[in-house]
Design a protein around this nucleic acid. Structure first.
Length: 275
DNA sequence: AGACATGTTGCTCA
DNA sequence: ATGAGCAACATGTC
């Protein structure tokens, strides 16, 4: 599920419920996979009694800062979610980490178990956090940087290139398709075959999709929409990409789906031409 | 039953 | 050395 804006949604949900509150109990389950590499005893001891100070989302990762120089990193993988339950919550089969405060249980649930929990101790954020590529909305994510990257990945389909987190942090399967659809670029085009003007359009749509998707969630202060995708514009490809017989919202012609760049890809043949 | 899933990594081959 | 393509990971759903 989680791409850029969804990750922000889940971060905000935990943050709202627990910022300024102490963790009184830490429950873990299945230390082999999601909690791999974690010293569970140290982890529990560090977080028990610690207060959530702040949190941030970048790309598809989240970082929660606790008192005592304790940092909790979470990646939601393919099917991870962060939920908030009453403090008495009994962990279900796929609840791998539960942080209990006086009021709430913060639950990390992930049936497919591709997610990841990281723990770090120190005054500054962990190295892996600082290494995340500059956000799509940042000045460092420039048209030139995109052009340079595309030149280096010249033979790969542009769809595959958009999924590369080292340049397009937070872009996942649906965002990549949305960006290409809006930019009117066929997903199978080799990255190196894009004209200068197309690269610029692509760059602009990367920012546009990120900004609009985030605006739906990051809105005023602590506001959090009740439904994850409720605010995604009705005009977007997003709402049609999985429908059988789905129509392009712009041209009203049939959409197509195929395996491109290692993922199922949806595009509008009327808008997005090969060559 | 079988195909497939909004992610990442690590392997192979060129 | 670098880039491209793909299986693997684990489980649920249609």
């Amino acid at each position: 599920m989680p791409e850029l804006a969804e990750v922000e949604f889940f971060r905000k949900r935990w943050d709202q419920a627990a910022r300024g509150h102490r963790i009184v109990r830490v429950l873990t389950h299945d230390g082999k996979k999601l909690l791999h590499g974690l010293d569970l005893a140290v982890f529990r001891r560090a977080l028990t009694g610690a207060k959530l100070e702040s949190s941030e989302a970048r790309a598809k990762q989240m970082l929660f800062r606790f008192t005592g120089d304790a940092w909790l990193g979470i990646h939601l993988g393919m099917s991870g979610e962060l939920t908030v339950a009453p403090a008495a919550h009994t962990p279900g089969k796929h609840d791998h980490l539960v942080l209990v405060t006086g009021k709430h249980a913060l639950v990390f649930t992930d049936p497919r178990m591709f997610g990841r929990v990281l723990f770090h101790r120190g005054e500054s954020p962990p190295a892996w956090w600082s290494k995340i590529a500059p956000a799509l909305e940042s000045a460092e994510f420039s048209a030139d940087a995109v052009a340079t990257f595309l030149r280096r990945r010249a033979r790969a389909p542009i769809k595959a290139v958009l999924l590369m987190q080292e340049r397009f942090p937070g872009v996942g399967n649906w965002m990549a398709d949305e960006i290409l659809w809006r930019a009117a670029i066929h997903p199978a085009r080799p990255a190196g075959s894009l004209k200068q003007s197309e690269v610029r359009t692509l760059w602009r749509e990367c920012r546009g999709v990120a900004r609009r998707a985030l605006a739906t969630i990051a809105g005023e202060g602590d506001y959090l929409p009740p439904d994850l995708n409720a605010h995604i514009p009705k005009s977007w490809l997003f709402w049609h990409r999985w429908e059988d017989g789905g129509l392009c919202p712009k041209t009203k012609t049939p959409l197509r789906r195929a395996w491109i760049g290692g993922r199922t890809t949806c595009w509008s043949p009327a808008r997005q031409k090969l060559r």
